[in-house]
Amino acid sequence: MTSAPVPVPPGPADPDGGLLAEQLLRVTRRLHRIQKRQLEPLGITPAQSRLLRTVAHCPEPPRMADLAARLEVVPRAVTSLVDGLEAADCVRRAPDAANRRVVRVELTDTGRATLRQLRSARREAAEEILAPLTADQRELLGGLLTALAEGSGPRC
């Protein structure tokens, strides 16, 4: 019979940060579950949501190959995501003006409206996670998360 692991407070008893890593993963998984539940009524998957956000953050419509690299997926996965989002009128494929062989992905008006709904769903999911924290704790957490996020590269 196995028992549940006993939480070890961070610090000298957890020098390698294993507990912190586990806590971050648990919070991330919880956030993803909440977001997935909130995305269902929109008919958007978490992967499609991520692609829409990536397209929106690019200064110009990205190429399909660039999206695959940024999302760290195989190009075929991007094709499937774009197919679904194009069917929902959230994005459209557009030829590159300088090179007809290159296909770029553009947001449509429906895609921009969907992004607004997605942002709202993400805020609601975050609020559900952050509800137990005071304003001071949220501010502290925000600073810590910003410091951690600075290690990630640019989106476009």
Results as ranks from 00 to 15, higher is better:
8 V>D: 01
8 V>W: 04
11 G>I: 06
15 P>A: 10
17 G>E: 09
19 L>Y: 08
21 A>L: 14
22 E>K: 07
22 E>S: 13
23 Q>L: 15
23 Q>I: 12
23 Q>G: 06
24 L>Y: 00
24 L>C: 07
25 L>C: 02
26 R>N: 05
27 V>R: 10
27 V>A: 15
29 R>I: 05
29 R>N: 11
33 R>T: 10
34 I>W: 03
35 Q>K: 13
37 R>G: 07
38 Q>N: 12
40 E>L: 14
40 E>F: 05
40 E>G: 00
41 P>N: 07
42 L>Q: 05
44 I>S: 00
47 A>R: 10
48 Q>I: 00
48 Q>L: 01
51 L>A: 10
51 L>W: 00
52 L>D: 04
55 V>C: 09
57 H>T: 08
58 C>R: 04
59 P>A: 11
60 E>F: 10
61 P>I: 10
62 P>F: 10
65 A>Y: 06
65 A>S: 15
66 D>Y: 03
70 R>H: 09
71 L>P: 05
71 L>F: 06
73 V>C: 09
74 V>D: 14
76 R>F: 11
77 A>R: 13
79 T>P: 00
80 S>K: 08
84 G>F: 00
84 G>C: 04
85 L>R: 02
85 L>Q: 05
85 L>V: 08
86 E>V: 01
86 E>H: 06
88 A>E: 05
90 C>Q: 04
92 R>N: 02
95 P>Q: 08
95 P>A: 09
96 D>T: 04
97 A>C: 02
97 A>P: 12
99 N>T: 11
99 N>E: 15
100 R>N: 06
101 R>L: 14
101 R>M: 11
102 V>C: 03
102 V>L: 15
102 V>R: 13
105 V>Y: 08
106 E>I: 02
106 E>F: 00
110 T>L: 09
110 T>I: 11
111 G>L: 10
113 A>N: 09
115 L>P: 07
117 Q>S: 15
118 L>V: 15
119 R>F: 01
120 S>Q: 11
120 S>N: 03
123 R>G: 04
125 A>C: 11
128 E>R: 15
128 E>G: 05
129 I>R: 05
131 A>W: 03
132 P>E: 05
133 L>W: 08
133 L>H: 11
133 L>D: 06
134 T>Y: 03
135 A>K: 12
137 Q>D: 11
139 E>I: 09
141 L>T: 09
143 G>F: 06
143 G>E: 13
143 G>P: 04
144 L>F: 10
145 L>M: 15
145 L>K: 07
147 A>L: 15
147 A>V: 10
149 A>C: 07
151 G>D: 12
